[in-house]
Design a protein around this nucleic acid. Structure first.
Lengths: 107, 107
DNA sequence: GCTCGCGTTCACATCATCTTCACCGCGCTT
DNA sequence: AAGCGCGGTGAAGATGATGTGAACGCGAGC
């Protein structure tokens, strides 16, 4: 899966560098796997808006999300865990039941 | 491979003098082979950022990294060993699985 | 010729990652 | 209450990526 080639994305305290596969949380480097990173990039590319799992899968995995595939949910959880550990005061990934997820920095 | 002609690079306790082919760790000279040195310079030229093996190979070896070539990994290991022996309290070379390596001084 | 340092390559060990499954709780409907 | 869909969460197994020690060949210097 190709990773977006945008320059630099900033979401609150998060700094995403698509070219390097690097995310800085408050200046400190986050260790993300390729999938976690691609998922974050996918979410960030629609920051503030609700993104369906289908769309996230298309962007981060490539291809079509098969019915019953929970990969997306599992990786949202992994991402959440790492983001929360890095920036405990923020909640970045919000669930919209029946619709998808939304990336948004919060207090 | 010609080694960068940058002036002087300081990474935490590391002082790299590309012109002289010399590295000082906490003031003490490190004994590095040419490849080890070139690799360190390549990493240092992107300090704080994640550098792909391909890029490292291009800079330190010249030419293109062939698939299956582990030279880069092997030399990262050699470099790590020498750096850790010189400055045990620091971890300089960080692995980003699937992306590459990042040079950064750490506690 | 011999030794030594170096760079490359190989083989194996170890670790991280990805996928999938199972089970849970929740809210909604019947 | 029971059934259902949905999402959260932990874990197992297969796979792939990286770490690591050792062997080999080579060229420089003795």
């Amino acid at each position: 899966m190709k990773t977006s080639h945008g320059e630099l994305v900033t979401i609150g305290e998060l700094e995403i560098r698509p070219q390097e596969g690097l995310v800085l949380a408050h200046g400190r480097a986050l260790v993300l796997s390729v999938r976690e990173f691609d998922l974050l990039v996918a979410l960030a590319s629609h920051a503030g808006r609700v993104v369906s799992r289908e769309e996230l899968y298309r962007q981060a995995w490539g291809g079509t999300l098969r019915r019953g595939d929970r990969s997306c949910d599992v990786y949202v959880h992994k991402l959440r865990t790492k983001l929360e550990r890095a920036l405990p005061q923020h909640r970045f990934i919000h669930t919209h039941v029946g619709f998808g997820y939304r990336l948004d920095p919060g207090p």
